Structure formats: structure tokens, C-alpha cells
Computed example of a mutant assay.
Amino acid sequence: MADMASTSSAPDRTPASLTVGFDLDMTLIDSRPGIRACFLALAERTGTYIDADLTITRLGPPLAQELINWFPAEQVEAMADLYRSMYPSIAITATPAMAGAREAIGGVQAAGGRAIVVTAKYGPNAKLHLEHLGLGPDEVVGNLWAEQKAEALREHDASIYVGDHVGDVRGARTAGALSVAVATGPCDAEELTAAGADVVLADLTEFPQWLANYRPARA
């Protein structure tokens, strides 16, 4: 779907050593089945109604931002801890990789670069997903959302950040990294473009070829 790809005249920000950051949920993994199952289990455990089908339409922001829709504010922290403790036994095996995820990470590493994951997900659970699926990033940083992601992107000198949410676009731009968006999450291509994404791809299957063309063009 080359017609979905768009580029801007963003300046060259490629360092001598390439580091590419990736979001996790709905970028590298289709976390909807696992998260849905975990919310259903949380609802059963607590006796609280949760529309699990609705929750998976708005993935991206931190867990607390979803829990506040179903629990009083004073219970959110405890419910987040409970959800995270239940998560490994419920959500990991139910969650597949997104199409092209393995090739996207491998393409960066084959080019001599480093692939890091920067996600709002609880770090230990993010690592469990990546290990279970055999995805091998060089670093995993959790618990960072939107502009907060710039902290890790700057620390690791990432020149590109790939994500599916407008929050990922904001994180990339705050870090001064090229924002590459994939229209596989809750935000469509038009919304990602409007948020300031430098490049919009249909999904990660397009990323290796885009990266191969991007590097020689700026060599």
C-alpha cells in the first residue's frame, strides 16, 4: 500500500550508528486478544463491569488511563498492580506478533544498527512478550508514554521512532527523531499524518524496504 506512505521534508537526523526505536502494542505485537482476556479476568476477579471490547479500541496510553473509566480513582493503583500480576499467565501466549515485526527488527540489526523497544507497557511484561515471540531487540524500556518516550530515545541516540499512536508521534518529535508511523493501531493514517508523522506506512511489512531506501538517500 505504497499510496498510504507519506514523507515530509524533515532534516537528516541519522547518526553514524543507527538506532531505531519501536513501540510495542499494535506496532510489534497485536496485544488485543491478551489485553481483552486480562480485562475480562479482572472484571470477574473484582466483580466490576468492564467493557473489554471497548478497552482494546483505545490501546496506547498507560494502563491507569483505562482503569479510571471503570474504578474509583483511589482504587486505580491497586487495580493496576492486580492487572499486571495477572497479565503474564493470561495475556502472553494469547498475543501474536504483528505482520512484519520480526523482519523490521531484523532489518535494523542486519544494517548494523540497534533496535530498541520503548513502550508505555509495564517493562517486565513487555519483555515477556518479546521473549515469547522470539523478537530480539537490543534494549527494552517500559513505563514511558508519549513525550516521556523522548527520554529513552535521547538516551539511546535513536534517530527513528516507529509507532502506531499519535502519542508515539509526539514522543519522536520531542526527541528530535524521525517519526515513522504504522496505521495498525487505533489511529488511522490521516490522524497520524495530522499529528506530524514524517512517514506513514500501512504496516511493518513496508518498513524494511523503507529503511533500505532511507539510509542510502541520506548517506
Rank of each mutant, 00 (worst) to 15 (best):
V169A: 06
A78R: 08
T184S: 13
L24F: 07
P124Y: 13
S159Y: 05
L211F: 05
R13N: 15
A197F: 05
E66C: 00
I160H: 09
T19I: 04
T174R: 11
Q75T: 12
M26G: 02
T55K: 01
L211N: 07
T57P: 09
A177L: 03
A194M: 14
Y83R: 03
V162I: 04
L42E: 02
R58K: 10
W210A: 04
S89Y: 09
L59S: 07
Y161F: 15
P208E: 01
S159P: 03
D53A: 11
A110S: 15
E131V: 15
G21A: 08
A219N: 13
F22P: 03
G185T: 04
C187N: 15
A175K: 06
A115T: 09
R45T: 15
Q109G: 02
Y49K: 04
G123A: 14
R170F: 11
T57W: 09
V182E: 06
I160V: 15
G21T: 00
D51Q: 03
I29L: 13
P88G: 04
A195C: 07
H129R: 07
G185H: 06
C187E: 13
L192D: 07
M79I: 08
G123N: 14
G185V: 05
V180S: 05
A97S: 14
M1P: 10
K121C: 12
S159F: 05
P11D: 15
A2E: 13
D25T: 01
P208T: 01
G106P: 01
D81Q: 14
R32T: 12
P61A: 04
S9A: 12
N213D: 15
V180R: 00
M4Y: 03
G134K: 03
I116M: 07
G163M: 02
M26F: 10
Q75A: 14
G107D: 06
G134F: 07
P124C: 10
T184K: 09
M4Q: 02
G176Q: 03
G21S: 07
A150E: 09
N125H: 11
L42G: 00
A158L: 03
D138R: 02
V20H: 03
Q209F: 05
I56P: 13
D198E: 08
D51K: 00
S6N: 05
A2T: 10
Y214W: 14
T55Q: 10
A41Q: 05
E190G: 13
A194W: 08
L54F: 13
V118H: 04
I68G: 00
Y87D: 10
D157T: 10
G163W: 04
L40K: 11
I56T: 15
S89I: 05
A152R: 04
F207E: 05
L59P: 07
W210R: 04
A101Y: 03
L54P: 01
I56C: 14
